[in-house]
Design a protein around this nucleic acid. Sequence first.
DNA 1: GCATCTAACTGAATCATATTCGGTATGATA
DNA 2: TATCATACCGAATATGATTCAGTTAGATGC
Lengths: 160, 160
Amino acid sequence: MIQLDARDKAILLELQQESRLSYAEMGSRVGLSPAAVHDRVKKLERKGVIRAYKIQVDPEALGLKLTAFVAIRLDNNFTGREIQPGLEQFHQIEEVHSIAGENDLLLKVRTSDTKALEALIYRIKAVPGIARITSTIVLSTALEGRPLVPGESDESIELR
Amino acid sequence: MIQLDARDKAILLELQQESRLSYAEMGSRVGLSPAAVHDRVKKLERKGVIRAYKIQVDPEALGLKLTAFVAIRLDNNFTGREIQPGLEQFHQIEEVHSIAGENDLLLKVRTSDTKALEALIYRIKAVPGIARITSTIVLSTALEGRPLVPGESDESIELR
DNA sequence: GCATCTAACTGAATCATATTCGGTATGATA
DNA sequence: TATCATACCGAATATGATTCAGTTAGATGC
């Protein structure tokens, strides 16, 4: 288990919202020199706490006007692991979760419209081992991509 | 509607996976000078296609070992819009979607463990207007944070 | 056909920032 | 007390972002 102090947490919180902050700016926010911030960030990268630097794009700008959650029930003799390679091929699938409950997998998918969603579902159905699909269409998204806040102990994240 | 050509799409695809690529490196990947890439990226930012630069962190490293989807059914005389402010206060909620179907809202939440999830659900239940909550625990996540691929017309995104 | 305008590009400055480095302080360890 | 590791700092250096003047190609209007 990696130990993160209050400054690491503050840095991670900032970078989750704006990863292009300069080390100097970050330093003045958390009370460290640019070089010290640099050290910490590199360490966080090395330890895998920081997984990647990404951009968030507006799905609509890419023509992806429809979001949906697709719940999948598998045939009894199949596991999620076995199905996964068959799902990866569809770039419309943004997330794949194995879940507990009535269904076995929950996917988050993005398509241009209902027609494209229909086509996608049809193709997913063709993947061997899939017994039943239930789709839920997203009408609107109020919150998305919020930063993750460290759990437990210190419920109040303040940087000073 | 913003028009994106093949190069814009290629740039967006790259940046969704690694937003720290230098303009020079990006230029050689898409066949442009660094300055030309710079122009394009700035334009994409200005137009809102690029919403933000972020880091992806490992939830486990933050002690967030549990992911769950929480479906909420509202009382008949409430709307998702009205409920939202009551939900924003919980930083454990990563996403809030208004959905069609049996339930009205679908939340993606992260907590440290089942105990913390229980506490969160309990507190969500206290928000006025919420009739019924159904939680689905994520056992494992196979895919997450995949890049969005432009929809429709050109199903094959190749960059030469 | 020709002048004009715009958008997108290029290469070459320039400027900001990341990165590296040597050195210091602190706390743990033997 | 000596030794070591960690985290920090300020200053130098290297890298990359940003700006800019100029070019090209494609539209537009006369």
